[in-house]
């Protein structure tokens, strides 16, 4: 099954990104495909490559790892502007793009799952 994922909350304040990561890993392990992961509203902050939590899991690294597997991980470009997140701050396997990417993932996916508040 193709699954689309939406993340609506930022790093560490909320569990959404952690849950989405573990969900995606579990889905891949079961042989499902992740159509794409869209980072929306504060979720775009998870794309920041300068996230370096002392002694804790790195949520940017987790998402970037999924991107390195070939899963499109897209941060909403308008939300990034609202939050001062610039292109050169985004980690290697995440891209900034518009709501068209969200529409694309919705279209491609058999199921669509939101992780948020």
């Amino acid at each position: 099954m193709k699954i689309g994922v939406l993340i609506m909350e930022g790093p560490y304040q909320h569990q959404a990104v952690d849950s989405a990561y573990h969900f995606a890993k579990a889905a891949l392990a079961r042989g499902h495909e992740i159509a794409g992961i869209f980072l929306y509203t504060d979720g775009v902050n998870n794309a920041n490559k300068f996230i370096r939590p002392p002694g804790e899991r790195n949520v940017n690294g987790m998402l970037d790892e999924l991107g390195a597997l070939g899963i499109p991980v897209i941060a909403c470009s308008a939300c990034a502007r609202f939050r001062g997140l610039q292109k050169d701050m985004v980690s290697a396997n995440i891209r900034a793009s518009g709501l068209g990417s969200l529409a694309e993932f919705i279209t491609a996916a058999d199921r669509f799952v939101t992780f948020g508040d």
Partner: peptide
């Protein structure tokens, strides 16, 4: 921001058929 962003998503997704 949720409701305002919900509104923007209606506009945003609406243009993508």
């Amino acid at each position: 921001v949720y409701s305002a962003e919900g509104y923007r998503s209606i506009m945003g997704l609406g243009v993508f058929e």
